[in-house]
Each structure stands twice: as C-alpha cells, then as structure tokens.
C-alpha cells in the first residue's frame, strides 16, 4: 500500500547540485560573487561557475585555513566569496579562522559545506561531520542554513548572495527526492509550515525534512495529524513560528542529521524551556560517530528515518 504523501516527487537529485546551480545563477546576477574551493570543485558542483567565470574563481588546493582567510580578504575588498569544501573541512578544521577572520570580523563570506552528515555514506566517519551545525550556530554573527532538497538548496544559495553577512550553508551528497517547488522564494530565518496538523509538530531540517513528510503520512494512517515545519534556517531560529505551532499541538519531535548535542533539537528545547515548556523528542545522532554504509542503511541504523520519527512522535504524544 502506498502512502498518501502531502508532498511528492518525480525526480531525485543531490542538494550539492542545487548549490552548484544556485551558485552559477548568483554569479550571473552579481559580478561581485566569487568562488573558492579547496580541491573539490567536482564534488561541490562548482565547475560550471568556474567555467563561466574563470577570473572570479580560485582553486586553493588542499588548504582550507588559507581558503577561509582569502575569502575574508576578498570580502573586505567588496567581493562576495563562496568558499566551498566538505562540511568537515569547512568547520572543524578551520574553526579558528572562521571565528576570527569571518565571524568576529563580520565578513560577508559564504561558507559552503557539502557532504555533511551520515548520508555522505561510504566514506565513513572521518568525513561524516555531525557537529558542524552546533559549532557554527555558537558563533556570534553567523547565519546557519540547512536546506532540504535540490530546489530549496538552489533558492537558499541565491538568497545568501543577496544577504550581507557571514553564512554557513550546509548540503549533501545523496540523491534525494525533490519535493519542494522550483523557483521558490527563500526567506532566511523564516520557518516554512509545510503541512498543517493538530496533534504534534515535527520540526525537521535538511534531508530529514523528506523523512518528516513520509512520517506525517504514516502517522495520518493511524489517525494522528502531525504538523510538519521545515526549519531550513538553524540560526537565526524562527522561534515565533516554533512556539506558535507547539502551542497548538502541545508536543513535538525534532529531526536532523546531526548530533543531538548542539543541533536543531537543542535550539528548540531552549525555546521551549524559556517560553513554553512542552514535551520534545529528538531524532538525531546520539553522541556517536558514523561509519561506512549507504545513506539509507545509515539513516536506518542510526535511527534517523521516517520510522524513527513516527516512534518519536508516539513517545511525545504519550508525554502530553
């Protein structure tokens, strides 16, 4: 029996391709947009931009710390640099460079981080960063964005070029359903209520928004009506939309491809505790590293798929 999904797809693509296509479009719109990449141009899908704008693109070699400094220097000279590498090397490896030269110095640098999370798959835990959102959201001045599919990633990429200030944009490698509209408007910091519901709210980010959409249909078959909210912007968090939803539904589940410590769930819990205490269950990685495997296998093993969101939802409902 197939599920009655509120959002569906006809095509699948990787979110990194959404970034690559959005980056090219941003470059066409604004001659100040420049690109940097640390020897991962193909992986980041930055090749089309490089081809069209060779004078505005800088291959930095395998030297991420230097890349962040270069980007800060270009930004202060009036450019809008998009610095791309894997999420692991875009955050943990260069935290101090981002902290001092970008965030503290308030430079208009876009840190573009691919291959984030477990869905990187076979490369294993060395590359599957699950702490990046936490590290980035702790930095003052930093905007943190984690879109859910190709279309949303493309729209987010175009939007951050038009926003003045440091941004961390997180995306990934797996071929994933495209279930949000093409040419959508992306509003930084504005949560998107995708599905109305009354019994509980699922706050999801990144690839797990799709899992939340599937979970909603599964819950509905059992007569449970979940609200699904797409939290594409982790910081600034749309606290108002989050609280408004949970006041109506009374309990919630957070779903993210990230450590529970420091992730979206943590940010939501803070908002609940301060303004509107309500039961919250977490779907995320519980204080462990990942491992090699296919994205689907990993999401299942680490408890990050639709079935786990359903389980968490039932737990949250019982606590109401």
């Amino acid at each position: 029996m197939s599920l009655d999904l509120k959002f569906n797809y006809t095509e699948k693509k990787d979110t990194r391709s959404g970034f690559g296509d959005g980056f090219l479009e941003a470059g066409r719109k604004n001659p100040n947009v420049v690109g940097l990449c640390a020897d991962l141009i193909g992986s980041l899908k930055m090749g089309d931009f490089q081809k069209e704008f060779p004078d505005r693109f800088f291959q930095t070699g395998i030297a991420e710390a230097n890349m962040i400094g270069l980007a800060a220097g270009m930004a202060l000279g009036g450019k809008i640099p998009f610095a791309g590498t894997f999420a692991n090397f875009a955050t943990g490896r260069v935290y101090d460079q981002i902290r001092q030269s970008v965030a503290y110095s308030d430079k208009n640098v876009k840190i573009c981080a691919s291959h984030a999370g477990l869905t990187l798959g076979e490369d294993g835990a060395t590359h599957q960063i699950l702490e990046d959102l936490g590290m980035m959201k702790m930095l003052p001045h930093m905007t943190v964005i984690n879109p859910c599919d190709y279309n949303q990633t493309k729209a987010a990429t175009i939007a951050i070029a038009e926003y003045e200030g440091p941004v961390y944009l997180r995306f990934g490698r797996p071929i994933w359903p495209i279930f949000t509209p093409a040419n959508q408007k992306f509003e930084i910091g504005k949560a998107w209520k995708m599905i109305d519901g009354k019994d509980l709210t699922i706050f999801a980010t990144g690839h797990l928004v799709w899992e939340a959409v599937v979970a909603e249909a599964m819950l509905r078959e059992e007569g449970i009506h979940a609200e699904v909210i797409n939290i594409h912007t982790i910081k600034p968090l749309d606290t108002e939309a989050i609280l408004e939803s949970v006041k109506k539904t009374g309990c919630a589940v957070s779903a993210e491809e990230h450590q529970l410590n420091g992730g979206l769930g943590d940010s939501i819990a803070q908002a609940f505790i301060r303004y509107n205490p309500a039961p919250l269950e977490y779907v995320g990685v519980n204080d462990s590293f990942g491992e090699s495997g296919t994205p689907t296998q990993l999401l299942e093993k680490y408890g990050l798929n639709a079935e786990n969101i359903v389980k968490a939802a039932k737990k949250a409902l019982k606590r109401k």
């Binding site: 202060l76 030269s101 503290y104």
Partner: peptide, 25 residues
Amino acid sequence: IRIASGSLGQGLSVAIGTAQAKEID
C-alpha cells in the same frame, strides 16, 4: 582596522585575498 588579528597565521591569507580582489577590480 579591516580584520581582527591575534590568533596568529591568518593575516597573510587575508592580505592575499584582498590583493586578488584589487586585481579583479
């Protein structure tokens, strides 16, 4: 002052980036 410094080793990268921005312009 155009950039924070203190944590060492970062200024050369920044200076190069600015030099390249000048070149583009």
